[in-house]
Amino acid sequence: MDFTFSEDECLLRDAAREFFATEMTADRLRRIWEEGGGCDDRLWSALAELGLPGILVPEEQGGLGLDEAGAVRVVEEAGYVALPESPLHAAWLAPFLLPTLGEEGRARWLPRLLSGEARIAVGIPGDLAVEDADRAHLVLLSEGDALFALTAGSFRCEPRTSFDPGRRAFAVTPSIDPVCIGAEGARIAAELLDRAAVLAAAYELGLARRILDLAVEHARQRCQFGRPVGSFQAVKHLLADVAVRLQFARPVVYRAAWVVAREAPRRALAVSHARLAAGQAARLAARNGLQVFGAMGYTWECDLQLYLKRVWSLAGRCGDEALHRRRVRQALLVGDTVPGAGDTFAEN
């Protein structure tokens, strides 16, 4: 049993953190907002240079060769800066979907994905819109049991304006037949949803930590009654509660990442648990963090909103709470046995 990260994985996380800290500042995010959200080509190329699109691609195919468990903390760091999501979709989901296009399709798209030449957007089952679909060379869209591989001219793209200005979302309507349908399409959709849910969960961990850090910083600076508001116990306890929820969501997400990377049992339960736990932590961080900021947190000017809005806009995507609760109920309340002590890792 080794529930820790390797030294290499830690180094990669640190590198990503450093890159995001310089590249994805609050000012940069605000410029992105003004330009209509999403990921511009310059950022896309910079991320490709960093190796992001190949993070889950085997080394012999030109990637970094990590699995989801090894890469999960890079996503966490992306969440910390509210990185536009489309490059994460390309890195986390596209390598899983490309093989469904056959050897030819994969050979055509994978090298260009890795080099950053091709932008691949992914439509996640249940979501109403595809991030950066208008900028993509290839849209992989999962709808019901159908998987579409759409290139320019084979789909219609209609903008959907989210209240989160960092989002650049489009409703996509295919005008060609799917590449995959029926049982195989349903299997792909299910697995895609699991992967997307873990991606969202890891991202939410980062968002929650960012909001917590901002609120702590504010509480140390802002003085009322002649002392920093962070010295008031009511304020301390709001933030301590966030720290607790976050501390206990993290390992749940790490385990889910390990589970989706292999054929481990009880996948739906592990994944939905991760999404629920991370979502709870992020929403608590948003609520309590905003409370600690007072009116300042309720302004457009305050950078807090950059992260709050992503928490709220992400909440209903990649499987919403209702979906994940239903899956957990199904796993726990139906079936022969109820998992208890000793069962958590037993069948891995």
Partner: peptide, 23 residues
């Protein structure tokens, strides 16, 4: 039912966090 499920999930989370620390 939600209360039952949430309690089970938190017990599982406590296990995962403890293994994480123990390792």
């Amino acid at each position: 039912e939600d209360a039952v499920v949430q309690a089970w999930l938190d017990a599982e989370a406590y296990c995962l966090a403890t293994y994480h620390t123990a390792c």
